[in-house]
Design a protein around this nucleic acid. Sequence first.
DNA 1: ACGGCACGTGACCGATCGGTTTAGCAGTCC
DNA 2: GGACTGCTAAACCGATCGGTCACGTGCCGT
Lengths: 211, 211
Amino acid sequence: MAKPLETRARLLKTAADLIWQSSYHSVGVERICEQSGTNKGSFYHHFASKEELALAAIDEQWRELKPRMDEIFSAATPPLERLGRYARESLRIQTAKREETGFVCGCPLYALGSEVGTQSPQLRAKVAELLDTRFRYFESVVRDAQASGEIDVADTARTARVLLDLVEGALTRARITNELAPIEDLEQSLLLVVGAPKAHRVRAASARKSH
Amino acid sequence: MAKPLETRARLLKTAADLIWQSSYHSVGVERICEQSGTNKGSFYHHFASKEELALAAIDEQWRELKPRMDEIFSAATPPLERLGRYARESLRIQTAKREETGFVCGCPLYALGSEVGTQSPQLRAKVAELLDTRFRYFESVVRDAQASGEIDVADTARTARVLLDLVEGALTRARITNELAPIEDLEQSLLLVVGAPKAHRVRAASARKSH
DNA sequence: ACGGCACGTGACCGATCGGTTTAGCAGTCC
DNA sequence: GGACTGCTAAACCGATCGGTCACGTGCCGT
């Protein structure tokens, strides 16, 4: 008999992976079970429904990502550099996922939320909640950059919203076109939006190339 | 016996509507048929598969939308005003759809493309093609605005990309949160990105309120 | 040593999936 | 009037869907 928590963790990981790379409705409980080496009975011992599994899976996915986000958006890092790090980390993640699956998969939250938004209030609420958490990272970046004089924007909240919308729009476009280009462009695009001085933009670009 | 072309058209319209407001996988052929008052046999007389129906449906949806897009993005309209008109038309469409369904449904192309992108090469290609068409409207807006001196950007193509990514990101967020706010903010956000003079932004805002 | 309980197993359920088949109806050309 | 064509009607297909159930199995406290 496998360790109890191992089974649950395996199901969460497998579900998050499969749903991310295909979609919620096109991946059945059956397939999640066989891919993770579990029996259906065991599945329904740990989760009351497929929906509850998905809820737990994206929660767990965020729990795993959070430390990296905290580091990338560390207050010890200059605000605009945080954006660059975030863009590069996104590219890293997407590249890795593509190597594993053959597909650029975009943002798992947006893909799931967009698919089930009108059908599962619970999943929609959970996705919205996690997106709001993500928004706060961008909010603090813009506020810090404004306070330090690196940028000059009229409305920090709106600017942060624009940044996140842009990120998610680009990630989704990457998924739809199955191309990394939108994510490769992300750093420059983010800096363009906050109106960073041209010198900073060029510096960031050449720094990336020399890596 | 119903008119032959009417049946096909009814199926296309119903499919586009249902898939938009729920999702591709959660809408069955059965439901599309009963909702449009068609029999399954008739369905498979007109379409070889559900996938082919979806392909034809988004094509038809675009065929219907195109005249409005051409008018909104008319070269006779000042470039930045085109963005405003586009944002307001988007809000109008989303508001109408919400009244009909109770949900903010976002962009049908992005919702569909994001869902089936990794599973149906044909649908993904078609969505990507239509998105590229949409991109060209924004490209010409930015170029025209740059030529007339209304804005000053370093890279018109990138700026146009950012605008469209922002639009789609906001529309998808509207779908996920089931709120119109992201779309209500769209006009101001677009103008913020192209760095329109503050006077223009304020003018646009007050003009909208007074309507 | 034993009873309870957490967990795993795999057969099974009705419903629905996308898709097929056969028959029949309405018009139309000969 | 009969053959042909375009279309619709409705029963039907195997597969798969999310979910259930009865039953083992092994670990635990007592």
